[in-house]
Every structure is written in structure tokens, then in C-alpha cells.
Design a protein around this nucleic acid. Structure first.
Lengths: 206, 206
DNA sequence: GTCTATAATAAGATAGAC
DNA sequence: GTCTATCTTATTATAGAC
């Protein structure tokens, strides 16, 4: 791992803020320079072009986001604990970076190349694929008749969708329900509880 | 309602495609002109500026999307029918415009002004607010003990999140699970079934 | 390494002929 | 209404002094 000078760090910090907020096209080198407390020429001195600076930020942010996400899911084989940990961990990660979902879903659809590489590295190349682990836990739970038969892919999409939605629809939600603050810890706690209850009752055998 | 010339229609059609795909910042007037089979000068002749063309497209698309969404939800007071209709209707609308979720969630966060106006018009100014109707149906079902007590706001977010997620995460999903085609009718049918089952079992009294 | 000044390019907007 | 050619502006990128 290379060492970064103080200036490089300040640039990357500023670039991250601006790119996540405005996207690749909407970001302005001038704004990044201003936030970093330097001028445009230095940006190019350190990172050569906007494209290269963006790739650097994108790779680091997406990689560490998914890595943190995977690490936050517990390794337990107990299904209830697993699901609770999954929901809690995912929501905590999203709350820590409320802009990431929007950024990723938008920017990835603009250009998949960098993302595909990252995703495969993180999810598939590791010796014990977390994704596979999740699927196995659910398969076993169905096998042992702890939960009803269900389509595991769709179940995962359901779980992820419920976690992700408020961060995605934040402007809509806060306009329609002015009392709600999506980033508040109260909302987060409620959310964890409501998702788990719906899911748990929705899949366990009656 | 004003009449549109053939050229105006072709421009709006092309502009819609480009703006939904690339966003306001990423869109290029040159590309819109090319798709419409004309040149840049005509774009400005008809719509004066990129900003005005964008506002025109944004207003029309967002408005008709939400309007179609609300109309697709049945007026029935039977809860199971209501939920089925809600899920089916929402997913059909999303499938018809698979880019809309990404576009709205990204572009709105860049500038809320136009969106707030539209949302209030559609959802709150109508004599019988559909949103209020949904909440009432759920409140009554809790009252009558058809379903367990739950937080209605969070339940709506859960429902919407499950519907929306595949369209948002399409690139991720199709990379991780190459057999899945998010826009296929098979996937759509599975999705409707799996969401309803999870939700119905998740909220009804046991 | 960092700056100021400036070049190069890209993209939106307009003038004027037809 | 529609085009070609051109202007203007915004933004990225570089040269050269310190």
C-alpha cells in the first residue's frame, strides 16, 4: 500500500465528496480544487486527468463499501441471528454513507467496466464466497423446514430492497412525510425492527 | 393541451431517451439532435435552451410516471386484492420504464425544486389523496385485526423497496446472477408472487 | 510542489442564408 | 422551419515562473 502525502489525501477527500454528490459528469475540477484548498493545476499534477481521479475515487469507494458490507454480516449459522445481523449491518453501512446507493446505482449504469472487475474480485474470488454462504444458510433452513420453501434470489432482493429504499427515495419520503428524517437514528432503529419482523413472520413456518 | 408538430414530437422523444439514460449533466444536445434527425440549431429554435428542454421532459415524464402508478393501484377495500394490485401495478409500471427509478432517484437529489411541485400536485392536491387512501386501508385492517399492528410508513417503504430494487440494482444482479434478466416477463412474474407471499404472511395474524 | 496565466477542447447558443 | 457556419462560454488541461 503506497503512502499518500497530505495534499494527495486532501484532494482525494474533496474529490470523493464532489463525485459522490454530483457524479462524474456533474463534478467540476474547480470545485474539487477549492474544497481541497489548492488550485486546479495541482489536481492535474497529482492525478493527471479528471477521468483518472474519478477512477481512483470510484474504485476505492465502491470496493470499501462492498467490503464493509460483507464484513458486517455475521458468520453465524443461526438463521434469526443471521438475518438480524444482515439487516442491522447493511443499514448501518448505508447510514454511514447515505449517498452511496444513489451514486452506485446511477454511475454504474453509465459505465459497468470498472464495477464488474471490483464486484468479481470481492464476491467471487475470495475462497469462501460470502454470497454463496448466504445462499447455503437459506437452503439449509428450507431443508430443515425452519422456513417455508421460497425463491432464495428473490428473497435476497426483497431484503436488500427494503434496506436500500429509504436512502434512495429520501427526497420523496421527506417531502411526503415531513416528520421523517431518513438519516436519524430513531428512523434507523424503527427500520431494523420493522424489516426483521416482516421478514421473519414472512418466511417461518406457521 | 397544445398541439405538437411532428418535429417537436421527434425532439421530445429523442430528448427523453437521452436525458433518462445520461441525466441532465451527461446529456449532449448534439446527441439529441442526431436522434431526432435534425441539427442543434433546431433544438434551440424550438426549446431555446438545454435547461428548458430538460425541464419540459422532466416534468412530463415524472408526472406521467407517478400518475400511471397511482392509477394502477385498485380502489378495492379488500386488503389482499389491494396489495396484489399494488404490487402488480407498480411492477408493471416499472417494467414499462425500467430507467425511471434510477433517473428519478439521481436527478431529484441534484435539484428538488421541480419535483416538489409535481409531487404535491399529484399526491396531495387531488380531492381524494391516493396516499391517504392507502394508509386508511391499512389502518382499518389493523383495527379489524385482519393484520397485526405495524408501522404503516415502514410497511409502505418495505413494499416499495422490494418492487423497486431489481430495476435499481439491475447491473449488479445481472453480473452476480448471469441467468437472471431483470426485464424478462418470467422474472417479473416470479417477483410479483414472491413479494406478495412474503408480505401477506408477514402481516396477517397467525 | 505549488502557483498564475493561458492554451485547448468541448458544448451550448446564435446569426444569417435559404 | 431548417440548415451551415460561427460565436460564446464553460471546463479540462498544460506551460512556465517560483
Amino acid at each position: 500500500m503506497e503512502k499518500l502525502t497530505d495534499t494527495e489525501q486532501r484532494i482525494l477527500q474533496a474529490a470523493t465528496e464532489v463525485f459522490l454528490e454530483k457524479g462524474k459528469e456533474g463534478a467540476r475540477m474547480q470545485e474539487i480544487a477549492r474544497k481541497a484548498g489548492i488550485n486546479k493545476a495541482l489536481l492535474h499534477y497529482y492525478f493527471r486527468s479528471k477521468e483518472q481521479l474519478y477512477q481512483r475515487v470510484f474504485n476505492y469507494e465502491v470496493r470499501s463499501f462492498f467490503a464493509a458490507l460483507l464484513q458486517s454480516v455475521p458468520q453465524t449459522r443461526d438463521l434469526a441471528q443471521f438475518l438480524k445481523g444482515f439487516i442491522d449491518g447493511y443499514l448501518d453501512q448505508l447510514a454511514a454513507r447515505p449517498r452511496m446507493v444513489r451514486f452506485i446505482s446511477w454511475e454504474i449504469s453509465q459505465d459497468m467496466t470498472a464495477f464488474k472487475t471490483i464486484l468479481k474480485e470481492i464476491l467471487l474470488e475470495t475462497s469462501d464466497s460470502p454470497l454463496h454462504h448466504w445462499i447455503t444458510i437459506l437452503e439449509e433452513a428450507i431443508e430443515k423446514e425452519i422456513i417455508r420453501p421460497l425463491n432464495i434470489h428473490h428473497f435476497l432482493f426483497n431484503l436488500l430492497g427494503m434496506c436500500v429504499y429509504p436512502f434512495l427515495a429520501q427526497p420523496v419520503i421527506e417531502t411526503l412525510f415531513p416528520t421523517i428524517r431518513v438519516n436519524s437514528s430513531e428512523f434507523l432503529q424503527e427500520r431494523k425492527k420493522e424489516i426483521f419482523e416482516l421478514v421473519w413472520r414472512g418466511i417461518t413456518k406457521t
